[in-house]
């Protein structure tokens, strides 16, 4: 069972990345455009109630791709809106904590003191 569990994470995660690659290649878009599209897609799926089942199914396969960022923001706003109504939609946006952003800021800040860009070819 544990094998199926990891396989699902691999396959679902891989498919989300594959979709990203197709958007990039066929749409001739920059990574920035592609990731923005995926985040919006994650938020929309979350709003339709479709993202949580995906997480239940694939675990890391659905929480690691950037789409889950849109999902967690949406769910955070939903929770606040449910409690406080109209005001909640706004305050919800500000109360949503995203470990992704804070982790990236902290590690980015630390890295800026440790590392230098190297510029070696692949």
């Amino acid at each position: 069972m544990i094998f199926i569990d990891f396989l699902l994470a691999f396959v679902i995660g891989g498919i989300i990345c594959l979709i990203g690659q197709l958007i990039m290649d066929y749409g001739k878009l920059t990574p920035g455009h592609t990731l923005s599209i995926l985040v919006v897609a994650g938020a929309v799926l979350s709003g339709l109630g479709l993202y949580q089942p995906l997480i239940d199914l694939a675990g890391g396969g659905a929480t690691i791709p950037i789409t889950s960022f849109g999902h967690s923001l949406t769910q955070g706003a939903f929770a606040e809106a449910e409690k406080h109504g109209w005001v909640g939609v706004l305050t919800g946006m500000f109360e949503v904590t995203s470990s992704g952003i804070s982790a990236a800021i902290v590690f980015g800040f630390i890295a800026a003191f440790i590392f230098k860009p190297k510029g070696k070819p692949n």
């Binding site: 990345c17 594959l18 990731l35 690691i64 950037i66 990236a104 980015g108 890295a111 800026a112």
Partner: peptide, 20 residues
């Protein structure tokens, strides 16, 4: 390509590379 850009590690890379 997107295989390393779409996961949250790619988001981290975008932030951290700009910081460095």
């Amino acid at each position: 390509g997107a295989g390393s850009a779409v996961p949250v590690t790619g988001f981290g890379n975008a932030v951290i590379s700009a910081a460095i």
